[in-house]
């Protein structure tokens, strides 16, 4: 069997430190961070400055972790840690979207070295502007998920009982569908879209949770569905089984807040961290909607 070093105090996995191609000149330096905070929904927002020691290979998440650990602003005042969302830390879960130096992106893949090159001296963090702020950098992206319901982004199978394999699919079709299927619902495309505007519904005095939810859903449903949902509709309309309810998806895409709201700014595709060909999806959905609408005109 394998013989191991009698002395294994070299440290377990990951204990040894990292650091890959960073500039040594930064060592010992401080990173200044400006965070736009807000204590709760509808509250006033305010800027707060933080300073954290520079470490090689840092990303915005580790900066926020240091801020939480210090719990002090740059001026030494004791402050509550900044609230934010994250989970996977490898840009697949879609949690950590925020405005970093004014641009929507994933905090976990926003590397400090690169941010400082982009904008020396300071990193600026703001919450997404198209969704209601819950607190600090944490926003409520419920509308984004609601849009997936609107376009029925699923394959309508009979159920989970065994019916053998799914349909045969050519490698070309798979390669076409796969990128669309990597959408992690991060909302970058919506944040950057000039046609996607914020909808914030506030619970009224005496309104029950259910009533409030119904009213909010209705408000969301009048708003733009967004590039991500259009792309999901295209994904499922391309799937042999998903296609069976293609009409329902096109109906959704051509109702209020549907594809017609898109103004072809193409920001969505430029900011999507997953490089999803969103404008291709939008154009495909546009074509399908055209054909469908004309057909409906004559078939009715």
């Amino acid at each position: 069997m394998i013989q191991l070093a009698e002395d294994s105090n070299v440290g377990g996995p990951g204990a040894a430190d990292q650091g890959n191609g960073h500039s040594d000149t930064m060592a010992g330096r401080t990173i200044h961070v400006r965070v736009l905070r807000q204590d709760g929904p509808g509250g006033e927002s305010y800027w707060e400055r933080h300073a954290v020691p520079y470490e090689p290979n840092m990303n915005v998440i580790s900066v926020l972790q240091r801020i939480a650990e210090r719990a002090r602003a740059e001026d030494g005042r004791q402050v509550a840690p900044v609230a934010w969302d994250c989970s996977c830390l490898e840009e697949v879960c879609g949690s950590c979207t925020m405005l970093v130096n004014g641009r929507t992106r994933m905090a976990c893949s926003a590397l400090v070295d690169r941010l400082l090159e982009e904008h020396p001296g300071e990193i600026e963090l703001r919450p997404m502007s198209k969704f209601p702020v819950v607190r600090d950098l944490k926003v409520d992206r419920g509308r984004l998920f609601r849009a997936l319901e609107r376009v029925e982004a699923w394959v309508p199978v009979d159920g989970s009982y065994d019916h053998g394999p799914g349909p045969r699919i050519s490698p070309e079709e798979q390669e076409d569908a796969y990128p669309l299927s990597t959408c992690m619902s991060c909302g970058c495309c919506l944040e950057a879209c000039p046609q996607y505007t914020k909808i914030e519904v506030v619970q009224r005095e005496g309104e029950s949770a259910e009533e409030f939810e119904r009213r909010r859903t209705a408000a969301y449903d009048r708003g733009f569905v967004g590039a991500h949902a259009i792309s999901q509709a295209v994904l499922f309309n391309g799937h042999p089984t998903g296609r069976m309810i293609a009409d329902e998806r096109l109906q959704a895409l051509t109702s209020a807040g549907g594809i017609q709201v898109c103004g072809n700014a193409q920001n969505c595709v430029a900011v999507c961290p997953k490089h999803i060909p969103l404008t291709r999806s939008i154009a495909r959905a546009g074509r399908a909607a055209t054909v469908w609408a004309i057909k409906r005109l004559f078939d009715r």
């Binding site: 119904r214 209705a218 449903d221 051509t254 109702s255 209020a256 549907g258 594809i259 909607a289």
Partner: peptide
């Protein structure tokens, strides 16, 4: 059709048609 649909205006109901025109 969503519950919101019923209570929306003529314009939002025909948004698609209008914008295609």
């Amino acid at each position: 059709m969503s519950p919101a649909e019923a209570e929306t205006s003529f314009f939002s109901r025909h948004q698609f048609l209008i914008s295609r025109l």
